[in-house]
Write a protein that binds this DNA or RNA. Structure first.
Length: 315
DNA sequence: AAGAAGTACAACCGCTTCTCC
DNA sequence: AGGAGAAGCGGTTGTACTTCT
């Protein structure tokens, strides 16, 4: 293993930090701020490189860090955000106050990913690795205040037709909505580990709905559409999924505002709670198109498809 | 009781992005 | 505009601790 180029000329210590080193770093940063990290070790009297100091402070010593296990709510949020934006740990961590990207990443790799792999091994190889959100947040059933079946935002008035971009369109930099898409899309081609792939696999929309009409296309330039049977925004939990859509003007959940996005996602998860102890054998999805940004995200709920038991603790 | 295997997470590396000049 | 250094980021590794056999 190599080492930091910034440390080439210095004799620096590596490996775990001692309490004495922590104390020096905390004392220095608390008093003077970190300023330029490369000068911190010299000024704080540490034989570490600046990069190591920075990491130690950000991931461990910062006073605003939340220690301890992840709550089921945090786990559910991580899973949902990961399904939307992929391995962008820093972005995910921004939605979890007091958590670092490193912490979220470790939690994902050591706990969540493993559970998803186990569930995949149970014989659902035809399914993408989606968690059973309703199981994960089971202990919190009923605790979310908002039900998406009765949203506070005004339904978008203009359409019964929801447009879903093809991958080509979604990643088109010339698309004026590209920035908005970036928020909701994983960076890179659709793959099995994202919710995106499940609704757009090989340019084919895979409907998890029953009874409604899904128009698909193999032509990446042709935008598939999903036609709702009515303008109802009612939401039905279970094997049948209904769609809700809101105008960006009237909806309080602006996808550009992380805090609101958390609320938005929380509401989605709230809506995904099973109606009772009943379960279904089919997966269901909810597509949340944003009229101006085209596509916001997908939430998945597939009861009994995955290995985690209702009420499982993710820590 | 002891070693092996598994787990959690701190820390590091290399690459990318940002900022300043 | 572009070069250099700093900061940010995600993947990976190392190690302490726990659980299993």
């Amino acid at each position: 293993m190599g080492h930091h180029t910034c440390c080439d000329k210095q004799k620096v210590k590596r490996g775990l930090w001692s309490p004495e080193e922590d104390e020096k770093l905390v004392n220095y940063v608390s008093t003077y701020g970190h300023g330029c990290w490369s000068s911190v070790p010299r000024l704080a009297g540490l034989q570490r490189c600046g990069k190591s100091c920075r990491l130690r402070w950000i991931n461990y010593l910062r006073p605003d860090l939340k220690r301890g296990s992840f709550s089921p709510q945090e786990a559910a949020l991580i899973i949902e955000l990961h399904s939307i934006i992929g391995n962008r740990w820093a972005q995910i961590a921004k939605h979890l106050p007091g958590r670092t990207d490193n912490e979220v990443k470790n939690f994902w790799n050591s706990s969540i990913k493993k559970k998803l792999m186990i569930s995949h091994d149970l014989g659902h190889s035809d399914l993408p690795n989606f968690p059973n959100l309703s199981n994960i947040i089971g202990p919190f059933e009923g605790s979310f205040p908002l039900n998406i079946a009765n949203p506070t935002c005004t339904p978008c008035p203009q359409e019964d037709q929801l447009f879903i971009p093809t991958p080509t369109q979604a990643f088109d930099h010339a698309n004026p909505n590209f920035e908005a898409n970036l928020i909701s899309m994983p960076l890179g081609p659709p793959s099995y580990d994202s919710s995106w792939s499940n609704c757009m696999l090989n340019n084919t929309v895979i409907p998890c709905n029953t009874g409604d009409k899904m128009v698909t296309s193999n032509d990446p330039l042709v935008m598939p559409s999903y036609t709702m049977p009515s303008s109802s925004v009612s939401h039905e939990i279970g094997p049948i999924t209904s769609l809700s859509h809101f105008s960006s003007e009237s909806c309080p959940y602006d996808p550009h505002v992380p805090t609101n996005q958390i609320e938005y996602i929380n509401d989605i998860m709230s809506a995904l709670l099973p109606p009772s102890s009943s379960s279904s054998s089919s997966s269901s999805s909810m597509l949340f198109p944003w009229p101006n940004s085209q596509f916001v995200g997908t939430c998945w709920s597939s009861y009994n498809h995955f290995g985690c038991a209702h009420g499982d603790d993710f820590n």
